[in-house]
């Protein structure tokens, strides 16, 4: 049919939302399996089942009356992450740690047990999932690898790797900045750092407007910087892609100081900003790995 209403140059094959949906998501991900990625608890069940490295699940709370006794099983840990199973944009995630006197703290502020209960109740009532009730996930707290503090010290950075039919296509490192309030999302003023997939090195920083050779809060050049455990991380992405019945995914990986790469979550509708971060369109990368991919797709869905 009609592919472009205008003819313009698209040398690297940048893919828009329409093309992503029609040629990558719909033919590769069946709707009945979306919940495996959308619901963090189901994601973790799948990961645990196949022994794929991810933060250990301490507890899953689905009902308010369970809070008290499930919390009793968790309170002996030194650090915890409390998350809504269906939250979005990192809302409702609280990282709490015990201080020397055994008091729970969120950052530098005291987080009493009553406040913890209140937060869990809020998650279960659906405060972070827009209306519908939700479940609360309590899991192991990730301690970011010291590699990150060489670039920027605060918050939890993560890697995003996009896979198609089990092959990693493109990756980026998302880092918080002094303006992003601890969040690593590009549209929340975090930055994206492009990755050379063959060599496992960083290429350039993209802050949403311009390209830089360094993190905006740190003048040290990051170009060519080697990512620790890259091969392991690459393999982890492949393994993860293979255990989910979803053929096009955005896999989020964190790098723990002690345990190395860990799966954080998976996405069925990965964002397209990664193309900007890597200065490369997805189409050309797909063509590199699967030369006949788009021809075949066009044929099957008769575009």
């Amino acid at each position: 049919m009609f592919h472009n209403l205008f003819n313009f140059k698209n040398p690297t094959g940048a893919i828009g939302l329409n093309k992503r949906n029609l040629t990558l998501i719909y033919p590769n991900n069946e709707r009945q399996f979306y919940h495996l990625a959308d619901d963090k608890i189901k994601t973790k069940e799948t990961l645990h089942l196949h022994g794929i490295a991810c933060a250990k699940t301490y507890s899953v709370i689905t009902q308010i009356r369970e809070i008290k006794h499930k919390w009793n099983d968790c309170k002996h840990y030194q650090a915890l992450a409390i998350k809504p199973a269906n939250g979005c944009g990192g809302d409702g995630i609280k990282i709490i740690k015990k201080d020397k006197s055994g008091q729970w703290k969120n950052g530098n502020t005291l987080f009493s047990e009553a406040m913890i209960f209140q937060h869990i109740t809020a998650i279960i009532s659906g405060m972070f999932s827009m209306g519908s009730t939700d479940s609360c996930l309590i899991e192991e707290c990730i301690i970011p690898h010291p590699f990150f503090s060489e670039i920027y010290g605060d918050g939890v950075p993560d890697f995003r790797i996009i896979t198609l039919k089990g092959k990693p296509l493109m990756g980026m490192l998302r880092m918080p900045t002094s303006k992003s309030d601890g969040k690593a999302n590009l549209h929340q003023k975090g930055v994206g750092i492009g990755i050379n997939m063959e060599q496992g090195t960083l290429t350039q920083v993209y802050d949403g407007k311009k390209y830089l050779h360094h993190h905006p809060d740190n003048p040290n050049i990051i170009v060519g910087k080697k990512i620790p455990f890259w091969e392991k991380m690459y393999q982890l992405a492949i393994d993860t892609a293979n255990v989910f019945p979803l053929d096009f995914m955005g896999i989020d990986i964190v790098l723990d100081m002690h345990k190395g790469p860990q799966i954080m979550e998976v996405n069925v509708r990965p964002g397209l900003g990664i193309q900007l971060v890597n200065r490369c369109g997805l189409e050309s990368v797909v063509n590199k790995h699967y030369p006949a991919y788009f021809q075949q797709i066009k044929h099957t869905i008769s575009l």
């Binding site: 939302l17 193309q275 200065r279």
Partner: peptide, 19 residues
Amino acid sequence: RYIGLRWTELLRFKPLLFS
């Protein structure tokens, strides 16, 4: 079945389109 870039995406992906 329209798979072209949206007009607003032309702006968004400007660095990639007019390399």
